[in-house]
């Protein structure tokens, strides 16, 4: 069988068809993205709220525990400063009730009242600047 080694007459060489270029329909893409975002938003929000709720509940529990511990500590302080406890402790370290006290009458004036450190005193009132004499004020009118 003879081989045909030339192009067939009459028959055109097939021309490649131009493929449609991949054009992105941005409007559709944006709509899809928006829908996707809208669908995910409640999930994200829910997750965020749940996580926050968990944190808040944990903080509330911690706050309640701290409040309770503060109250317990306050009660401990109150017990430790009660009169009976102070009396017991005083006896333990060898203190005894005071006998009849001796009062000393001093004829000299008492010490001057303690002064507050300067940082606790109110700011001193600003002293007004001395006013210029009238003839100096005239000089301000000079043109030079």
């Amino acid at each position: 069988m003879a081989a045909i080694n030339h192009p067939l007459g009459g028959a055109r060489r097939p021309i490649g068809l131009p493929l449609p270029s991949p054009r992105v329909n941005w409007a559709v893409a944006a709509a899809l993205a928006f829908l996707l975002f809208a669908a995910l938003l409640p999930v994200v929000q829910n997750s965020f709220v749940t996580s926050r709720g968990f944190d808040i509940q944990a903080s509330q529990r911690e706050q309640a525990q701290l409040r309770s511990q503060i109250a317990l500590l306050e009660a401990d302080v109150a017990r430790l400063t009660s009169q009976s406890r102070i009396e017991r402790r005083a006896q333990e370290i060898g203190m005894v009730p005071a006998a009849d006290p001796i009062y000393v009458t001093v004829q000299e004036p008492g010490p001057a009242p303690a002064k507050l450190p300067a940082e606790y005193l109110p700011d001193p009132a600003p002293t007004p600047a001395p006013q210029d004499s009238w003839w100096k004020s005239l000089l301000s009118w000079r043109p030079w």
Partner: peptide, 19 residues
Amino acid sequence: ARRGAILDRNGGVLVTSVD
């Protein structure tokens, strides 16, 4: 609610509340 404390005139605690 935590019930208020009762103090003497000098602030000494006479009654307080604990959880």
